[in-house]
């Protein structure tokens, strides 16, 4: 959430400077009630700045998840969701699918090649056994085919990467989804507490403050998982 003119730190500094001046005036006039009221406001500004920072973090994370793109080289492999945006989770899912397809092709080739090599080896073994004298040519063929078979087995075992990388990607996707959901829930809770408090008459820094926003947000966070569109709406309703 940056529009080039907005500087949240500067905004907070200006608000604190304003309150500091008011506090000095109250103290000068020995207005202790007014002074303590201003101190409460200053505390509220601190809490608001933390809340605002969390909001920006949630918005940044959500934007990164939704708008993640790869370079042009890999783009044509990647599916786009209904909104036309390839999100990070769908792109990671595509990586799993692409590596699975690649591993499947390799394994299909191995399924036909390994038996061929073994058949060739068996043939050479039969020839070597039938030969009356030792043949250097047959021995070298035998050793070469043995090495080819060994290498093919190494290629086979290496396809296990697809399982391990796929599991890692699934875990990362889960962590991203949970992190986003938890941040949204935290923001909703903080906003709710703030709206209930009589001592914190603080408005959201960027809040549109439409009525019903908090209730709508709470209802949405009750769902097990929010869609990307719902997350967008919820963040907007909270002012981020």
């Amino acid at each position: 959430m940056s529009n080039g003119n907005f500087d949240p730190e500067q905004m907070i500094i200006e608000r604190l400077q304003g309150k500091a001046a008011e506090l000095a005036n109250c103290l000068g006039a020995r207005d202790m009630s007014g002074a303590f009221s201003i101190i409460e406001h200053i505390n509220a500004v601190r809490e608001e700045s933390i809340f605002h920072g969390l909001g920006l973090l949630a918005r940044g994370l959500h934007t990164a998840i939704v708008t993640f793109e790869v370079d042009d080289h890999g783009k044509h492999y990647l599916a786009h969701d209904e909104s036309g945006t390839a999100g990070v989770t769908s792109q990671l899912d595509n990586v799993v699918r692409m590596s699975e397809e690649s591993a499947r092709k390799t394994l299909n080739i191995l399924d036909t090649t390994l038996p061929m090599v073994r058949e060739l080896r068996a043939g050479v073994d039969r020839e070597a056994a039938a030969a009356s004298v030792s043949s250097g040519f047959l021995e070298s063929q035998k050793a070469g085919l043995q090495q080819v078979e060994h290498n093919l087995m190494d290629i086979l075992m290496a396809q296990g990467f697809q399982d391990l990388s796929g599991q890692a990607i699934r875990k990362v996707n889960g962590i991203l989804g949970n992190l986003q959901k938890d941040l949204i829930a935290l923001l909703t809770y903080a906003n709710h507490v703030k709206s209930m408090s009589q001592t914190l008459p603080v408005q959201l820094a960027l809040a549109d403050a439409e009525s019903g926003g908090v209730e709508e947000a709470e209802e949405q966070t009750k769902e097990a998982a929010l869609s990307q569109g719902s997350v967008d709406d919820l963040l907007a309703s909270l002012g981020f």
Binding site: E100, A103, R104, L107, L156, Q159, G160, D163
Partner: peptide, 17 residues
């Protein structure tokens, strides 16, 4: 039993060998 096809096929091949 494995949810990844590649791992199922690898284990099957090794068992076959």
């Amino acid at each position: 039993v494995d949810d990844f096809e590649s791992m199922r096929r690898i284990v099957k091949q090794v068992l076959h060998d």
